[in-house]
């Protein structure tokens, strides 16, 4: 049976170990000269995609990220972990889950993946909304908070064990589907130096939201940000 193309969505956040400070203008948190890294849950998503390829389930892994030029570094990390190519949707404008989801949905329409995989939440805004928004826009089934993903031999569906408030739940989704990854799905690998070198030669395409026909206009504004 034909293998599954996987779209792995990765976000770039302030590193989890950094102490967060609200800026003096109270419009957001201080990000300048602060260490950033791939969102930890997106590392899990990328790792899962790579394992699917190693198991002979995935044919190709396309890593995608939305954000400023620094997001290219995050995509290089995904490539060093084992993604085959990358798409950087470059924008310096503020994005929220709805606008990110519109962009990811457009990329998915272009690439027609069998699985869209991403972290369950970004540790920056903690919304945990993008996976559901993307699957809604694509009218695809969703499997959130996955702790185990098994693609059937015919590659037409996947059985997903997901974490719920009460325990675990097993669901079956036909493919294509959107999967969001919880903590216990896997332990992401570290990119090795040879793979980091190799990643520099892997293809990375840069697009704008306008290239994809995705609007960044949303009805949600940040009024203020305060320390707790």
């Amino acid at each position: 049976p034909p293998m599954v193309k996987v779209l792995a969505c990765v976000a770039r956040c302030i590193d989890y170990s950094i102490k967060i400070r609200v800026n003096p203008e109270k419009t957001g948190v201080v990000t300048a000269n602060v260490k950033h890294a791939m969102n930890p849950f997106c590392e899990i998503a990328t790792e899962e995609a790579v394992r699917l390829k190693e198991k002979g389930v995935a044919s190709e892994i396309i890593a995608v990220s939305v954000g400023p030029k620094e997001n290219a570094e995050t995509l290089r990390t995904a490539l060093a972990m084992g993604a085959d190519r990358a798409i950087h949707v470059l924008t310096d404008e503020r994005v929220v889950p709805l606008s990110v989801a519109r962009i990811l949905a457009k990329v998915a329409e272009r690439e027609s993946p069998g699985m869209v995989i991403m972290g369950k939440q970004a540790i920056s805004d903690d919304t945990a909304g993008t996976p559901s928004l993307v699957s809604a826009m694509l009218r695809l089934p969703q499997a959130l908070f996955a702790s185990e993903v098994t693609v059937t031999d015919d590659k037409k569906s996947a059985t997903v064990i997901r974490e719920t408030d009460a325990g675990l739940e097993t669901i079956k989704v036909s493919l294509p589907a959107v999967v969001s990854c919880d903590l216990r799905l896997n332990e992401p690998r570290y990119a090795t130096l040879p793979n980091i070198m190799k990643a520099k030669k892997k293809p990375m395409e840069t697009l704008s939201p306008a290239d994809l026909g995705a609007s960044l206009a949303v009805g949600l504004q940040t009024v203020s940000v305060a320390a707790p």
Partner: peptide, 16 residues
């Protein structure tokens, strides 16, 4: 709450 509760964000919605 954002950033694990290290900041509180106030947002305004103009959606329908």
């Amino acid at each position: 709450a954002i950033y694990a509760g290290n900041a509180l964000e106030t947002v305004k919605s103009t959606d329908s």
